[in-house]
């Protein structure tokens, strides 16, 4: 028995146990939170985990506006998907334009900076007064609230294209459009994806704010309904749903990035 193999196995054992510990740690923090929650609810009016769960089940038996929790989450998601489809098309195109073309940059940057300094919440009164409380104004608020991050990230990626890559294009006699589409845009893809991720989470936050003002469906509407009818379990349940869906969206966009930009993950 060589000492070296014994040492190795001790280290391997350590790593094995550490891996297990890392898997257990989130469970511990979650259980602690649950414990705290139970305790707080025992000594105050705060709804207990059981109340919240029961409220969820009740929503299935007695839907609000004909929708259970999945229906309302879906209603919110549809709004952000429409807004994001617009943002990912026009936001990326606009970001490429001001990141690549100096004239366009000079022309639009001051305007854009002023626009993105106005928070989405500040748009709500204006848009509501102007366009009412229908479906379109809500989507417009989400667009305004999440377009900045995709534009900013795309622009940053496009104005930081490695000069060396463009030199390769020059050596190979690439045309201006080949340099844009085959060198600059691909090299900015990871920055663009960072924009896609942040705009998705921004859109998810803004849609809830938009729905809290006069909607007939969506998770934001559920929260307002809970507040109006002094239904704390409903409010809490909706908030938990928001958290879970938000986390899922983050995981999905990250997964999409790995799938579409496989070179960003390092093998060693």
């Amino acid at each position: 028995m060589g000492t070296k193999t014994t040492v190795m196995s001790v280290q391997e054992k350590r790593e094995y146990y550490l891996k297990k510990v890392y898997m257990v740690l989130p469970v511990i923090s979650l259980s602690l939170l649950l414990l705290l929650w139970i305790n707080v609810s025992k000594s105050s009016a705060f709804p207990s985990p059981k109340d919240t769960w029961d409220r969820l089940i009740m929503l299935f038996q007695k839907p609000i506006k004909g929708l259970n929790i999945f229906g309302h989450v879906w209603a919110s998601l549809v709004r952000i998907f429409i807004a994001l489809a617009f943002n990912w098309t026009f936001g990326i195109a606009f970001g490429i334009l001001i990141g690549w073309n100096k004239t366009c940059k000079a022309l639009f940057t001051p305007l854009f900076n002023a626009f993105r300094a106005v928070p989405p919440l500040a748009w709500i009164p204006l848009i509501t007064l102007w366009l009412g409380t229908g479906e379109f104004p809500k989507i417009l608020i989400v667009i305004f609230g999440s377009i900045a991050s995709i534009v900013v990230n795309t622009q940053a990626g496009m104005s930081n294209v490695e000069k060396l890559y463009l030199d390769v294009g020059t050596i190979f006699n690439a045309s201006a459009s080949q340099k844009l589409f085959q060198i600059a845009i691909p090299s900015a893809l990871d920055a663009i994806f960072a924009g896609i991720r942040t705009s998705t989470s921004a859109a998810w936050m803004v849609v809830l704010a938009a729905e809290m003002l006069g909607a007939k469906s969506g998770v934001g509407f559920l929260i307002t309904r809970g507040m109006d009818s002094i239904d704390m379990p409903l409010v809490l349940m909706s908030m938990i749903a928001i958290g879970i869906v938000g986390a899922l969206l983050a995981i999905i966009t990250q997964f999409a990035e790995r799938l579409l930009c496989p070179w960003t993950k390092k093998s060693n």
Binding site: Y165, D167, V168, I171, N173, S187, C261
Partner: peptide
């Protein structure tokens, strides 16, 4: 630049994507 001349770069300049 001319098609008949090609270059190997010191800093590699390989496209990571």
């Amino acid at each position: 630049s001319d098609k008949r001349i090609s270059m190997v770069f010191q800093k590699l300049a390989l496209m990571p994507w």
